[in-house]
Write a protein that binds this DNA or RNA. Structure first.
Length: 808
DNA sequence: CGTAGCCAGCTTTTT
DNA sequence: GCTGGCTACG
């Protein structure tokens, strides 16, 4: 099949690299897609091209993303390109697809059909419940750490019996892992890691199933490949049939080819298990012959791209890639130094006001920061200025307490053995069931190895009566809601649970009541979006479908399963998952949006991590300081410093037209003022692409020019020579007087007696290098200074001992 | 049983 | 400096 046979409309306007990627032959391939290079377009056009040229039927496509947002976007775009029913295709997140797979084969996976999914919160409370039952000391083995350990094991594909424990600490954790597994299995729940691992194990251990899917998925496409973890990589390898399980009896040759799309320079999730190395492993282990680099950037001018390229060139482990543009230089990257975080924020807001006056939409202005704590001071400034803004991050809809409470009741309707939900609902709203009664109940349940709800009958006295009444109420509700619509089930549950009444009685419960009402709407739109119960997609049975009918029917292999969280009917009984169970799955797999007023034109505030994949006309990257960005926890070892640099690379490449970088001399952090040096990343940017709004200070970390208290006020960079969308204004014309914000902090002469160091002073230490005094205390021989060394962190040094050379 | 108050911790996050 | 989680008290 050649590109010419495809609809010209599909391929027009692709650049040569994009065209080559879209029309690659059916073999394994790696696409190195730079920021803003049209990656999603290539991915979706590739799928459309494969379908249109008849190389594959919709059922033969497996396209995997990390987020629901990306999956949805892919489906939307695909739907716009081709008159194909995208719901029949396996397009989704790793977890969403694993869920679908496990629902289809729940018996083989040893799960109940309506198994429910624990989110991170649920998982932690499940572990804590375990701690209570087995008297585990949370001080000695923090539950969070155990959670992390379990997740890590699953990512490595290890069950408790496979973990090698060399010390007592690990042995204990393995024991807890084992107990946790048993508890989840008994309750019929799985966590996120379990979705992946159990899918993987089922594929690994069941030859017909594996071979079926290997035959079926002729084209496997993975987005953001640099973010895959070890298990996800193994899962892909298994489905592609490359490796140990490719040919069981020598007869079967898998045909699936993998198209991995990613950018090693944008790998910023190592901390949660992502392995950039998967890209190189992929090339080696899959014998990749085709590698295409998408380096043409359609987003930014060359000042921005040169900055990004120069910065990332300081990283050592790279596959190698350089962004280019046909757009010309665009505006310079503006650099601003403030004297405090407060004034940095005020300057930013003034600058934003100016941009808005110049007709930039507020939603096209983004403020990026390294850590969430930095948003507060910015929010305060925005609020005081009456500037609408929106903060990304924080709790999402389905993670809110009131929603989780309501979901707990709904889950109990589906599965009374779900102890996590039982514990959450049993005394909320309060109904006189105390810790004492629940402890008794837990003892009984543990002794007989049954669910909490099954242990109630053994309980005597008032405790038993109260809890029994609670359970009886749930039973009645279950009876009453039989056959009702999802919407009505939820409405009845909210009513029965007393949650609405409870929050209405609370003076500050109005938002929560509103959210609970929104839950009913969410259920309604779930029904219509998922087309539950009426839109069972029937794809034409093509040659692939014909082939599939040869597979064992008892395994319930259904080409026509609808997409996303829609479950497959049971192969034997034809029984489908209840709408409620499907909705609960949806709630766990997609936590929903985190901001209510989505459409509003507001300034966008978010962490750099959260900005990945987004773009804005104007971007402010704030807090460009040693210890913050790069973060102090990531400055010492090479790998994590390189990840910080990639993070900065991501941040820079978000900007279309105008980019600001700012740092501040002082900053409030953890309740105390810190004196930060400016980020080393400034030294890695090309001088000719930058424009210093405040005077450029000498050297890395330097604030030394002219000393404190002087040297400003005359040297501000002139505002001439800028090009681009926003004509530069004459200084002062709109009242932006930078000296208001940029005035250096006067030296704090709180010096201890007997030495001449002062806070803010720059100095040199033989071992730790250049640093800056952040605090002083004591006097005479006891005088100590707290010094921030960019490469070694913050130290307290005795002035009578340490060899310190003051620097200008 | 509910809540006030105290103390520890404090990078990034999707499913 | 603020928040979330736990303890101790009313």
């Amino acid at each position: 099949m050649t590109p010419q046979t495809a609809d010209a409309g599909l391929l027009h306007n692709l650049n040569p690299e994009q065209l080559a990627a879209v029309t690659l032959p059916a073999e394994h391939a790696l696409i190195l897609a730079g920021a803003g290079s049209g990656k999603t377009r290539v991915l979706t056009t590739r799928i459309a091209w494969l379908l249109q040229t008849g190389q594959v039927s919709p059922g033969g496509i497996l396209a995997v993303t990390f987020t629901n947002k990306a999956a949805k976007e892919m489906m939307t775009r695909l739907g716009a390109m081709l008159p194909v029913n995208v719901r029949g295709m396996w397009i989704g997140t790793f977890h969403g697809l694993c869920n679908r797979f496990l629902r289809a084969h729940y018996k083989l996976a040893n799960l109940p059909q309506a198994f429910q999914i624990l989110d991170t919160q649920d998982q932690l409370s499940s572990i804590k419940r375990l701690y209570k039952q087995f008297g585990v000391d949370d001080e000695r083995y923090p539950a969070k750490q155990t959670q992390w350990f379990i997740g890590g094991c699953k990512e490595d594909g290890l069950r408790p019996n496979a973990v090698v424990a060399r010390d007592d600490e690990t042995r204990k954790k393995v024991e807890l892992y084992q107990l946790y597994e048993e508890q989840c299995q008994r309750e019929g729940v799985v966590d996120f890691g379990e979705l992946m691992l159990r899918s993987y194990e089922l594929l690994q251990g069941n030859d017909p199933i594996r071979e079926h899917y290997q035959r079926r998925f002729r084209h496997i496409l993975i987005d953001e490949f640099q973010d895959t973890n070890k298990l996800q990589y193994a899962w892909i390898k298994m489905l592609a049939g490359t490796g140990a399980h490719s040919s069981v009896d020598g007869a079967f040759q898998p045909t699936g080819c993998v198209l991995a799309v990613g950018d090693d320079d944008q790998s910023i999730y190592a901390f949660r298990g992502a392995r950039v190395g998967n890209m190189a492993d992929f090339v080696r282990e899959f014998g990749v012959q085709h590698q295409i680099k998408l380096e043409e950037n359609y987003r930014s001018g060359s000042n921005i791209l040169d900055s990004a390229n120069a910065l990332i060139s300081h990283n050592s482990k790279r596959l190698g890639k350089n962004l280019r543009t046909a757009q010309g230089p665009g505006e310079p990257v503006r650099v601003f130094e403030a004297s405090s975080d407060f004034l940095e924020a005020n300057w930013m807001v003034d600058e934003m006001k100016q941009l808005v006056r110049e007709d930039v939409e507020r939603k096209e202005i983004a403020v990026l920061y390294r850590s969430n704590a930095q948003s507060r001071v910015i929010e305060t400034s925005l609020f005081n200025a009456g500037m609408p803004y929106k903060v990304y991050g924080g709790l999402r809809f389905f993670e809110r307490a009131e929603i989780k409470n309501a979901l707990a009741y709904l889950r109990l309707l589906e599965n009374p053995r779900d102890d996590t939900s039982f514990m959450r609902a049993v005394n909320f709203p309060p109904r006189g069931i105390g810790a004492r009664s629940l402890e008794q109940l837990q003892d009984v349940a543990r002794a007989s190895g049954c669910a909490l709800s099954d242990a109630v009958s053994a309980l005597t006295g008032k405790a038993g009566a109260n809890i029994g009444a609670f359970l009886a109420g749930i039973d009645v509700l279950r009876e009453q809601t039989q056959g009702l619509s999802l919407r009505d089930i939820i409405a009845a549950t909210l009513d029965h649970s007393g949650l609405i009444t409870h929050y209405k009685a609370d003076r500050e419960g109005a938002d929560r009541v509103e959210n609970l009402e929104e839950l009913v709407n969410a259920a309604e739109s779930f029904v219509s979006i998922e087309g539950f119960g009426r839109d069972a997609v029937a794809l034409p049975v093509d040659e692939l479908g014909q082939a599939l009918t040869q597979s064992p029917a008892s395994q319930g292999l259904d080409l026509n399963q609808p997409v996303l969280d829609m479950p497959a009917p049971d192969a034997d009984t034809g029984e489908t998952l209840s709408p409620l169970a499907a909705f609960l799955t949806h709630a766990a797999l997609e936590a929903g949006d985190n901001q209510a007023q989505a459409g509003q034109d507001a300034i966008q505030l978010m962490t750099v991590h959260a900005s990945k994949g987004l773009e804005f006309d104007c971007v402010f990257i704030t807090g460009m300081e040693e210890g913050l960005f790069p973060h102090e926890n990531s400055m010492t070892d090479r790998d994590s410093l390189e990840e910080e640099r990639r993070l900065m690379y991501v941040a820079i490449t978000r900007a279309r037209k105008r980019l600001y970088l700012s740092h501040s001399q002082t900053r409030m952090l953890h309740g105390q003022t810190r004196y930060n040096l400016k980020s080393r990343f400034f030294e890695e940017l090309p001088e000719e692409a930058l424009k210093w709004i405040t005077p450029k200070q000498s050297g890395f970390g330097g604030h030394s020019s002219g000393g404190f208290g002087g040297g400003f006020g005359s040297g501000y960079a002139s505002h001439s020579g800028a090009t681009g969308a926003y004509p530069e204004r004459a200084r002062g014309q709109f009242g932006t007087d930078y000296s208001k914000y940029a005035a250096p902090v006067p030296p704090q002469r709180q010096e201890a007696s007997g030495h001449s160091f002062k806070v803010g002073q720059k100095l040199f230490h033989a071992k730790f290098g250049e640093g800056k005094v952040t605090a002083l205390e004591g006097s005479g021989d006891d005088a100590r200074a707290q010094i921030n060394f960019p490469r070694h962190g913050v130290k307290w040094l005795a002035l009578s001992v340490a060899k310190l050379t003051p620097l200008p």
